[in-house]
Design a binder for these strands. Structure first.
Lengths: 242, 242
DNA sequence: TTGCTCCTCACGTCACGTGAGGTGGC
DNA sequence: TTGCTCCTCACGTCACGTGAGGTGGC
């Protein structure tokens, strides 16, 4: 009924582009990938978009602005998902991406503000390499089983509390209590490393400059205190360094 | 002298790839773009990499792992920058990227957890569109002059403190104090909008669900309180709702 | 001589930007 | 008829992945 009274408003591609803030090329592209086909064409072959097309374009642009790929957008529309459902799905990826970006930023910050002054290039390169090896290892572990890593995180938090108490009591890291706590840390480290000595070595190199960010309660200073305690432990045992 | 005693260790491409954890194709690519040329070739044309090449590769991989593009890496090496200098430059971009990613994540979180339940699609699309228009506007302003926006940020923070006090004292947002504070907010809003009514309207639509993240001290609840105060203000004046 | 490694093209990815060369529509 | 808009190719971007088809080296 309404469509009789309200004649179809049809816009040419340039008008639509100006009205919505996209380029003409973008509209060409959306047609090419089958995302937005104009309702019709003039005799001369010029595209004509109607109201439905305009609404569809707004939705596409909205989802693109929130970071969805054109494929995501297409799936969302084709499968008739609600907007909230679509956003909820996308949020998962956005969380990952934000975590990745902030982790990278924090790593760079720490490497830049290494108090030791200008480190030699060799050492820095080795440290960075160790970091990415550890990241891969942690990633593989995480997707293997997740419950275990939560338990480990809790144990690390508990250890941080006790170690900080020990440090604030003015005890030497090589004292009896420090060594006892270091032994617990070593057990956690070996569990994380799953018997790979490279991982243990990488951890030793990296942890002072880049403490794992999922370990709340640990800061570089506490990490150095642990390092000294671990040193005391291995010297005492007389065993191999790991 | 040493090069006589220690014969040049030369590796074929497969060995190097396995030793460093990259693919053969990656090494081909690095040669193609002129980043890493092997020291020599066998008679049959097979590539031979020497120790210098290996060190260079380690550095390339380290910088790539920190998010530098191959062009960035090349510039860093060609212009003989130290690693710390290189990282410091790159940190700027990493900060931007992390800010962008977390802003996007926060926006999605708020849109997902809109307490109003499932909003209608139309409204949500309009809100998202308003968000990106505001982002462009803020971006344009920021690059125009930066000092002014710092002053504005400080005024918003002061306003947040006073408005929260007003709210916690149990005063109505439409009371005398609320309206006075709302008037100050309105002045800041108009300064931000630079006379563009679209911007004012977009702000009104967006601010409850996505308060600007550079405004410390503001949360959605306080924002709603301000909204009511602004409402009281425009009703009183009898003026147009901008 | 058989495998394994290595070689050189060359296309594909993602969302368009940027021309080139040619016509429609007021 | 003059501009402006529109049309359809088609290459370029970034860092490689993934073949294809053919040879080197132990």
């Amino acid at each position: 009924v309404e469509s009789l009274e309200r004649p179809r408003l049809r816009r040419r591609i340039g008008e639509l582009a100006r009205a919505t803030g996209v380029t003409v090329r973008t509209l060409h592209h959306y047609e090419q990938v089958g995302l937005l086909r104009p309702a019709g064409r003039t005799e001369g072959g010029h595209r004509l978009y109607d109201e439905t097309d305009v609404e569809r374009l707004y939705r596409i642009r909205a989802l693109r602005a929130l970071g969805l790929s054109l494929d995501d957008v297409r799936r969302s529309i084709d499968e008739g998902r609600t907007l909230t459902e679509t956003l909820r799905r996308h949020l998962v990826r956005a969380e990952d991406e934000a975590a990745r970006a902030t982790a990278l930023r924090d790593r760079l910050r720490r490497l830049c503000s290494a108090e030791d002054g200008p480190v030699e290039a060799e050492a820095l390169v080795a440290t960075i390499a160790a970091m990415s090896r550890l990241e891969r290892h942690a990633h593989a572990r995480r997707r293997a089983r997740t419950g275990q890593s939560e338990r480990a995180a809790r144990r690390w938090r508990e250890l941080a509390v006790e170690l900080r108490a020990c440090q604030e009591a003015g005890e030497a890291p090589g004292g009896a209590r420090g060594r006892a706590l270091a032994a617990r840390a070593q057990a956690l480290i070996h569990a994380f490393a799953e018997g790979q000595p490279t991982v243990v070595a990488d951890l030793a190199r990296v942890r002072a400059v880049d403490p794992p960010h999922d370990l709340a309660g640990w800061d570089p200073e506490l990490m150095r205190y642990l390092d000294r305690a671990l040193g005391a432990l291995t010297n005492e045992g007389g065993g191999q360094p790991c």
